[in-house]
């Protein structure tokens, strides 16, 4: 555990909680892509199946349970409790265009051709693109609430910090995982355009809106 890994995890946790609180406090999930949230729930479910097979640390187990619990709570709020506020018309990204290729790729390129390892690989690949429905939704409506942009910033920052964690681990532990690194780079790159808008607009007190 190094500082990048820890702050990355905390940034991830912050993102998840910001989103849950935003929906809960405003009693609305307007502007939030339910499809991205379903994909994240699927990511955590397929990645953390090792909760049943191996114990790593109390920290590891607790964080996994919190991530999974929050992911399903978010999906529940969007599709059940506050369903009336869900903006389904603008959440029109075709997720099968992500899930099917990612499923194929995880069967083809993995560390070990075993069910748990393939599901772990699937979750890594899927996470890298799971935010696309949300970004697509923002590009479609042309705007995002400021709290939603804080959520996206924390979520993007998390994977960027993991990249530094992997650089650290490569130098000091000789550890590297090519699948996680390549997917992590892809994931971080997808946020770059958003990071730019966040710094140039949101941090200067403006609302994030895109030119028509």
């Amino acid at each position: 555990m190094n500082i990048f890994r820890l702050t990355g995890d905390l940034s991830h946790l912050a993102a998840i909680i910001i989103l849950l609180l935003k929906i809960w406090k405003s009693r609305s999930c307007a502007g939030i892509s339910g499809k991205s949230q379903i994909l994240f729930a699927l990511v955590f479910t397929t990645r953390y199946l090792d909760l049943f097979t191996s114990f790593i640390s109390l920290y590891n187990t607790c964080m996994k349970l919190i991530y999974i619990g929050c992911a399903y709570a978010t999906v529940y709020l969007i599709y059940a409790k506050f369903r009336a506020t869900y903006d389904g018309n603008h959440d029109s990204f075709r997720v099968e265009f992500l899930v099917v290729p990612v499923g194929g790729l995880s069967v083809l390129i993995n560390h070990d051709f075993s069910p748990l390892e393939i599901l772990w690989t699937f979750s890594i690949y899927l996470e890298s693109v799971a935010i696309l429905p949300q970004l697509f939704m923002i590009s479609k409506t042309g705007e995002a609430e400021t709290i939603t942009t804080h959520y996206l910033f924390c979520l993007g920052l998390y994977r960027a910090l993991y990249l530094f964690n992997w650089i650290w681990r490569f130098y000091f532990e000789g550890f590297f995982d090519m699948i996680a690194i390549v997917a992590g780079v892809v994931q971080t790159v997808l946020y770059c355009d958003f990071f730019y808008l966040y710094v140039t607009k949101v941090l200067k007190g403006k609302k994030l809106s895109l030119p028509a």
Binding site: D9, D50, I56, S57, E117, W120, Y162, G174, F175
Partner: peptide, 10 residues
């Protein structure tokens, strides 16, 4: 090395 189970990262 390769990161095969167990995974310590989240």
């Amino acid at each position: 090395g390769l990161n095969i189970n167990p995974k310590d990262e989240l």
